[in-house]
Design a protein around this nucleic acid. Structure first.
Length: 216
DNA sequence: CAGCGGATATTCT
DNA sequence: GAATATCCGCTGA
């Protein structure tokens, strides 16, 4: 399977909407990553919405910092953060400037450049594990902080572009509590803002939030 | 699949 | 000091 010849990115208006509209609409879309070695494309199968300053689970909750400033900028741009001292995760900014909401890309199916993705994800036993999880997805695509602030709606040879793809029909979209987010699940503050394609083998398993104490 | 310890930058207390 | 939008390698089912 390869990406269709039309590689026109989604229009910026697509992202200039409330994040809870954009998040489920991203399922089935194609993210195209252009590397010096060639293209890698992923069909998005799982996302999570983060609702800016209103959302205690959002990186934007406490206002702008050097890490999250891209979230406060224009829609359609990529916010990449480094977490747990080892991993990168990528988001797409939604809503008008200052809204600071974003959609975390959590999982997908590699549909082009599988050989390149395998080289970046040597621990994956099966191809369905190549992008099964947000940090795995970023790793498979070679995404790091150098791509923070990239415009995913720009035409031409940009490093990252979000293409139309084939949207997952709404009756195949499932949603539930967000994975690993403090405050979700248990104390009544659940936001069911994780969306995935029903039955897709590349969707990551749900994990409840667990505070982990640092060992000595 | 679930559960566990380990690795550790950024941010807040 | 301590938590966190995570993953890996291991054990056990």
């Amino acid at each position: 399977m390869i990406v269709p010849p039309d590689r026109t990115p989604l229009p910026r208006d697509f992202f200039d909407r409330p994040v809870l509209e954009v998040a489920p609409d991203l399922l089935g879309r194609t993210l195209l990553r252009t590397t010096p070695d060639g293209p890698i494309a992923v069909r998005v199968t799982e996302v999570e919405a983060y609702d800016g300053p209103n959302d205690p689970g959002s990186h934007a909750y406490r206002g702008p910092t050097p890490r999250n400033e891209v979230m406060f900028g224009p829609p359609g741009h990529v916010y990449v953060y480094f977490t747990y001292g080892m991993w990168f995760c990528m988001n797409l900014v939604c809503g008008p400037v200052g809204t600071a909401s974003a959609v975390l890309l959590r999982a997908g199916e590699i549909i082009e450049g599988v050989d390149l993705a395998r080289k970046r994800r040597l621990s994956a036993r099966y191809d369905r594990e190549l992008a099964k999880g947000p940090a795995r997805l970023a790793t498979a695509l070679g995404v790091d902080r150098a791509l923070d602030g990239t415009d995913a709606c720009a035409a031409g040879e940009t490093p990252l572009r979000m293409l139309s793809g084939t949207p997952v029909p709404s009756d195949q979209v499932r949603n539930g509590a967000r994975t690993g987010v403090a405050g979700e699940g248990g104390d009544g503050a659940v936001h069911p803002w994780r969306y995935w394609a029903a039955g897709d083998p590349t969707v990551s398993p749900y994990r409840a939030h667990v505070p982990r104490r640092r060992s000595s």
